[in-house]
Amino acid sequence: MLSANILSMKMPLSEALAVSLIGIATVIVILAVIACLIILVSKAIRAIEAKTSSEKEETPAPAPAAPMAKGTSAGQVELINTNEKEAAVIMAIVAEKTGLSLERLSFKSIKLMEDEKKGDENK
């Protein structure tokens, strides 16, 4: 009936109203289904994430690290004849000059060169 009317390009108002009501009802149903799915999927994902995080909490914490040797910084940088303040300044300068963040830089040791220090003092 609908296709016959479309072919003739005419549709009585009652039929146009019926098509409209079916159309709007379908839009509402589809969106309601999507909304329900969003709620369900969100809940499922949250439940999975909560389970994963609780499992992580249950696993024993790693043993505390061995006490650091004297002259070693918290970031495992070996400081030789240098205090932590000077080392921090040097690391900040290197980060600034290289354009890399401190997380991406690894310092093994910072050592004060005695000869150069003396040479500087003679100048």
Partner: peptide, 29 residues
């Protein structure tokens, strides 16, 4: 997600305009 329903409601205009245009003599397409 409940906000979805408002998106649907605001499409009423499409279908009622379709009826009105049909009433005014435009062919169905």
């Amino acid at each position: 997600p409940k906000l979805m329903l408002f998106g649907a409601a605001a499409q009423f205009g499409i279908f009622f305009t379709l009826c009105l245009a049909s009433l005014l003599g435009f062919d169905i397409k």
